[in-house]
Design a protein around this nucleic acid. Structure first.
Lengths: 212, 212, 212, 212
DNA sequence: CATGAATGAGGTTTCATTCAT
DNA sequence: TATGAATGAAACCTCATTCAT
């Protein structure tokens, strides 16, 4: 029941005046700032409002509660991840399977690395804001994009079921999560990326009938 | 700096008297109960003490703070996971690579499934109690166990580096995590298990020189 | 000092344009709606404005503050009650005492019953808007109407003093209040009405010199 | 469903140590003080705690919320009223009807007058704390006491039904309420008392079969 | 050793009201 | 005149932790 969980977290009202739009963006930006500078447990609505240069009241005009604030940032982040992967899938159409997988993995690792600090910060708050539900929603998007891409692989006889794609995504996310949380170096990330490419390629090869 | 993080979380004193041991166990058990019944954010030291049938004061005689309480439970849980995997490794010695991997995966999936609710509950509190640090410590144990096992594989020419093992563990954990958080069914877990077996086997095969 | 209390609560400006009158009425109506649907403590000026289909700003153009809003509704309600009783008094002129009293009681009970939900809702807000002062003002009107009526009673030698009339009104109001607050049924109200008739008749008979 | 309403208002825990009992009483006393000095709408939990010389936290150990605080005071007040009337009923046994009624009315008026300020203050908060429910509970007590008393009246053939007693109580309460809210003088109260005696006596005479 | 009363800083959220547009 | 974005004081309530008994 993702819908259920998520309704309470949706923005309270959509700004109609230009001024309001600016305000909302300032609040979201401030949320990230505070998240990074103070950490998840020291993030308070007042602090965010202050950082955004507005009053708490204003904050609460657009976000029904603290969770919805984090939710907005979380959702935005996952959207960016999803878009990066989707774009990689687009680009991977009609390429050989191994190349496809490489594209996806590289895109995923890159976007996560680029936003390493936010990622780590969000891991901490995810459980409080219906994380799994949002993750699942994004998961569906990615699965669909990857599935479409795989359909166009010239060297694939039988596409793997959705399940296998989920599996791959979960494995990829898990590996990145532990690397990010451990504060891996740039060099590590490069190595991880190559290993993830191998991991995903070999798994996909295994669950796929490959043409000659 | 895992050491730093962890010292503050260790139990205040090791109970020597039998009575005290009973008390400590009651408190740990109560912590799990409260975690499951009230959720992480409604877990308070008073509630735990009440559930354990002792006073808050008593609780604070054995645990210096709330975190240490959760830490104890978390640590215990990871220990059980580690032991299950280590035992599987023991059993896997001198078996073919594919069989080894299957043992490990099956053991890991089983132990996580058996404690599904606790696992999910602990995912939520992990960030507050230096989760990654503990996870890393356990990770070292598992890596070592798996490494030793791999050394005895009759069909492996060149053992993979530590890095690849970490990778596999991270992928496995990540996949299980998303399944557990999504509340997967028994049937799902069986399917996941088989896919994880394939995933790990094919990855290990790829990073390993296999004999003939 | 009723005057003092009441001045601050009067509407800000008397609407002259037709459009304005419509707006004011919409706001009053919305106030009642919100009172009934959300309860007194959840009644906010924004909610009223929204229900009325205007902006908060507009609301504040006609009412200087929240109290004045409730005051307007309260005042209106009491006016209706007063008018019902006054009309009953008019009709009761030159009838025998017992008949007079019956008219008044029946009119009062009817008008309160008809507006049972509003009555109950207003009981809750009355204290916040100088309720007693308004009640007293209306009380004066009723007392005067009843007094005039009694003067024409053919079977009354000596009219009771104002005090006795106040007494009767207070008793009547009190009885209705507790019935309304208890959520009495239609049947109950009929029974209450008859008992109130008896109560008032016997009291009035007692404080009145009756002719032969 | 009074029980439903009232459960949320019951004290959180009964003090076991002597110290705690003192604290609870201090809090109740402070509640009355603040109610009288600042008025209902300026009564805040912090103010009460401060006046009681304890911290807010302590207050919340014994009362689950602000309402329960007021509830405790309200309940106590009504208890005192009930006891006064019950005691008057006890004393009135076997006396003539008129004398019985006089006892009850005098007792009621006296106890309310003695606590005039608290009464008025409580009228204001009653709606917020399930007033009607408590009132009804006390109403039952009084009705029972009065009923028992009436059974012993030497000059009453047929006792009035419960309903008539409720009526009388409601009328009496209503009359006192408006007098108290209007800030009546001592002299007024004496006059009111005598009128209420007449009102109740004549009503009761009317609904009662009196012997010869 | 155990108890449980007391602490109080600190968090979230509401809402009457104003005023620039 | 109408709008609705912004304000910010102020309320309620929680809970980790201490310490006298």
């Amino acid at each position: 029941m993702p819908a259920d969980v998520l309704t309470a977290l949706e923005p309270r009202k959509t700004p109609v005046q230009a001024r309001a739009t600016v305000t909302v963006e300032a609040i979201c930006e401030a949320t990230i700032q505070v998240l990074l500078s103070h950490g998840a447990e020291r993030l308070t609505t007042s602090r965010v409002a202050e950082r955004a240069g507005v009053s708490v009241g204003t904050l609460y005009q657009y976000f029904p509660n603290k969770q919805s604030l984090l939710f907005a940032v979380f959702d935005d982040h996952l959207n960016k991840v999803a878009m990066a992967v989707e774009s990689a899938c687009e680009y991977g159409h009609h390429k050989p399977l191994a190349e496809m997988i490489r594209q996806v993995v590289v895109a995923f690792v890159s976007v996560k690395m680029d936003r390493a600090d936010i990622s780590v910060a969000l891991y901490k708050v995810a459980p409080d804001i219906g994380g799994p539900a949002v993750v699942e929603r994004v998961g569906r998007r990615l699965r669909k994009a990857i599935d479409s891409m795989l359909q166009t692989a010239p060297d694939v006889e039988l596409c793997p079921d959705k399940f296998a794609i989920d599996m791959m995504l979960a494995a990829m996310s898990g590996a990145m999560r532990s690397a990010l949380e451990a504060g891996a170096s740039q060099a590590s990330f490069r190595k991880i990326r190559e290993h993830l490419v191998v991991l995903c390629q070999s798994y996909m090869a295994a669950v796929t009938m490959q043409r000659s």
